[in-house]
C-alpha cells in the first residue's frame, strides 16, 4: 500500500484530485461587478467628502461631491442590476435583512445610500426643502463610509483563499482607493482654486491604497502569488503605477488644468485596475487547488505541533 511521508514533502508540493479546483470560482461578471465596486466606493467616499466640505463651509466642493455621490451611486446600482440579470432581483434582496450576509447588508446600504444621495442632490439642484436635503446629505456620510468598505467584507466572506485571507487589508485597500477616486473626481469638477481639500484627499487616498496593497501582498505569503502573476498581476501592477503616479501628480497639480486632468484620469484608471485585479486574483486562487490545500495543510501541521 502506498504510504505518505509528509515530513519529506517540500512545502510547495501538494496533492489534489487531478488538479481540479476544490472551491468554486465566484461567478460575478466583468465589467459589471468590478465597475460596481469602483462606483460604489467613489460614491461612498464622495458623500463623506460632501459632509466634511459642508461642515467646513466649502460649499462649491460640497456641491460637487454631492453630485459625484449621486451619480456614482446611480451608475453603480445600474451595474449591480446588470450583474444580477433582472431589476426585480435587486428588489428581492430587500425582502429580508440578514446580518450574516454581507450581500444583504450591502443591498440595504446601497438602497439607503442611493436614496439619501438622491434626496440630497435633488434638493441641492432645485433648492426645494433645503433642511431635508442637508439632513439627507449628512446621513449619507454614514452610509457612504459603509459603501466604501463593505465590499471588502463581501469579498472576504467567501472560501476564496486570496480574498478570505486578505480580510484585514482589503477594507483599507478599498477605502483608500475610494477616497482617491472621490478626490480625483471632485478636483476635476470644482474650480481649481477651491479644490485644495479634494487634491489632498486624492493624495491621501492614493497613499493609503498603495500602502494597503503592499502590506496585503507581504502578509499573504503564497496567496500573494495570484495577485502577482498573470492578468491579475498585470492589473495590480498597472493599478500601483497609475495610483502612485496620479497621487504624485495631484500633490503638485495645484491650479494646472492639465496636471489635474492627468492626475484624475490616472487615479480613476488605477482604482478600476485595483477592482478588476482583485476580482481576477480571487478567481485564480479559487481555480488552483494549491491555494486551498497548501495553506490548510500548513494550518493543520501547525495545529498538530509539526508532526
Amino acid at each position: 500500500m502506498p504510504r505518505r511521508r509528509d515530513e519529506m514533502v517540500p512545502e510547495a508540493e501538494f496533492r489534489s484530485y487531478y488538479g481540479q479546483p476544490i472551491v468554486k470560482k465566484p461567478i460575478w461578471h466583468e465589467p459589471h461587478m468590478p465597475t460596481y465596486l469602483y462606483l460604489g466606493g467613489l460614491s461612498g467616499a464622495a458623500s463623506v467628502m460632501a459632509v466634511a466640505a459642508r461642515l467646513s463651509g466649502a460649499d462649491r466642493l460640497a456641491r460637487a461631491s454631492q453630485m459625484i455621490a449621486f451619480g456614482g451611486g446611480a451608475a453603480g446600482a445600474g451595474f449591480l442590476v446588470a450583474e444580477l440579470g433582472r431589476p426585480e432581483r435587486f428588489l428581492n434582496m430587500l425582502r429580508v435583512f440578514k446580518v450574516t450576509s454581507p450581500m444583504s447588508v450591502g443591498s440595504w446600504t446601497l438602497a439607503a445610500h442611493g436614496g439619501l444621495t438622491s434626496v440630497g442632490a435633488a434638493s441641492a439642484v432645485t433648492g426645494v426643502l433645503p433642511v431635508v436635503g442637508d439632513a439627507a446629505t449628512l446621513a449619507s456620510g454614514v452610509t457612504g463610509a459603509l459603501m466604501a468598505t463593505y465590499t471588502a467584507v463581501l469579498l472576504a466572506d467567501t472560501a476564496v483563499p486570496a480574498w478570505h485571507e486578505a480580510m484585514r487589508e482589503l477594507p483599507f485597500l478599498f477605502a483608500g482607493s475610494a477616497t482617491a477616486s472621490a478626490g480625483a473626481m471632485a478636483m476635476l469638477t470644482t474650480p481649481r482654486r477651491l479644490a485644495g481639500p479634494a487634491r489632498a484627499a486624492a493624495v491621501t487616498g492614493a497613499a493609503v491604497e498603495t500602502a494597503a496593497g503592499a502590506l496585503m501582498e507581504r502578509r499573504l505569503g503564497m496567496l500573494a502569488e495570484p495577485y502577482r502573476t498573470g492578468r491579475a498581476g498585470r492589473l495590480m501592477r498597472a493599478s500601483r503605477a497609475l495610483t502612485v503616479g496620479g497621487g504624485l501628480l495631484a500633490a503638485v497639480a495645484g491650479r494646472s488644468r492639465t496636471l489635474t486632468a492627468l492626475s484624475a484620469a490616472a487615479i480613476t484608471a488605477g482604482a478600476l485596475c485595483t477592482r478588476f485585479g482583485v476580482l481576477e486574483a480571487g478567481r485564480v486562487s479559487a481555480a488552483d487547488p494549491k491555494y486551498t490545500v497548501v495553506p490548510q495543510r500548513d494550518r493543520l501541521t501547525a495545529r498538530l505541533g509539526g508532526r
Partner: peptide, 13 residues
C-alpha cells in the same frame, strides 16, 4: 477602515 476614511477626509478639510 470606515472611521479611518472619515478621519482622513476630515483632516484634508
Amino acid at each position: 477602515a470606515a472611521f479611518g476614511l472619515a478621519g482622513a477626509v476630515a483632516a484634508c478639510f
